[in-house]
């Protein structure tokens, strides 16, 4: 069984994002970039399925500019067998990303596609669901547990009401939640090994994907700040303050 894993590069989650004063974007120059944390979890899950003998091959997929190869090497060092780099200088929106994945699915015929539930830059939370729709296959979003057996995935999903268990016939799309696993750290020898693993580069334009984006971002702003609060010295003072506000 082949598994395709989405592996997006984003601004590192520890970076405090600054909006450019002219409202044209956020500052990304000189900012640390890392794998989307949910995608690390997706890759980890795929690797574990391979280690269990469920999967035979794990392929990481990245969509982005020429220098994305360094990022894909990290995915290879973590343990993916090979990488596919869809080369484009433009940022792609989720629907376009889903269409790209569908093209790669047609070519690679995976039984499972694992994506992060959202990327921590645009926080869209769309690509997996859109891909599953275009592919006309099951989706199991927000997974915190995945069991594969008898041609189906049994997935525990973190939903607002609790934990939902669903069954999905393969092939299927799974998107990862935080508690699915803890991704492994990359070891130095693995970085060396990754250098000889193949990265297949495909020009975005050659895929025949419609790139028309329906959304246009016209302005970026910093969020409204909450005004500075007050410190109280003890429980009695806190209760008095809350009672005064009519909250107790």
């Amino acid at each position: 069984m082949k598994i395709l894993v989405g592996y997006k590069r984003v601004v590192d989650y520890n970076v405090r994002i600054q909006v450019k004063p002219d409202g044209t974007g956020v500052v990304t120059d000189g900012v640390k970039l890392s794998a989307n944390p949910f995608d690390d979890i997706a890759l980890e899950e795929a690797l574990r399925l391979r280690e269990k003998g469920v999967a035979t091959e794990v392929i990481v997929v990245g969509i982005g500019p020429a220098d994305l190869t360094a990022h894909l090497r990290n995915g290879l060092a973590m343990g993916a067998n090979r990488a596919i780099h869809v080369v484009t200088a433009d940022a792609v929106q989720p629907l376009t990303a889903a269409r790209v994945f569908l093209k790669l699915i047609e070519k690679e015929q995976p039984e499972l596609v694992i994506l992060g539930k959202q990327a921590i830059d645009d926080d869209a939370n769309q690509t997996g669901q859109m891909l599953a729709a275009l592919w006309d296959r099951p989706q199991a979003t927000f997974a915190s547990r995945v069991d594969i057996a008898d041609g189906k995935a049994t997935v525990t999903r973190e939903v607002d009401a609790g934990l939902e268990v669903i069954e999905a016939e393969l092939p299927a799309v799974i998107t990862t939640d935080l508690r699915l696993n803890e991704p492994r750290f990359i070891k130095l020898p693995d970085i060396m090994k990754a250098k000889s693993k193949p990265i297949d580069s495909i020009e975005f334009g050659s895929l025949g994907v419609e790139a028309h984006d329906h959304l246009r971002t016209t302005h970026y702003a910093a969020p409204a700040k909450r005004s500075k609060g007050v410190m109280v010295k003890d429980a009695a003072e806190l209760v008095a303050a809350l009672k005064q506000k009519g909250l107790l």
Binding site: P94, A124, A132, A133, L134, Q139, T141, F142, V159
Partner: peptide, 18 residues
């Protein structure tokens, strides 16, 4: 989680962004 699961699937079926 209900809407986040469903809406993108609807959007993709309609061929539109979300």
């Amino acid at each position: 989680t209900f809407g986040k699961d469903i809406a993108p699937r609807v959007a993709a079926l309609l061929g539109v962004a979300q």
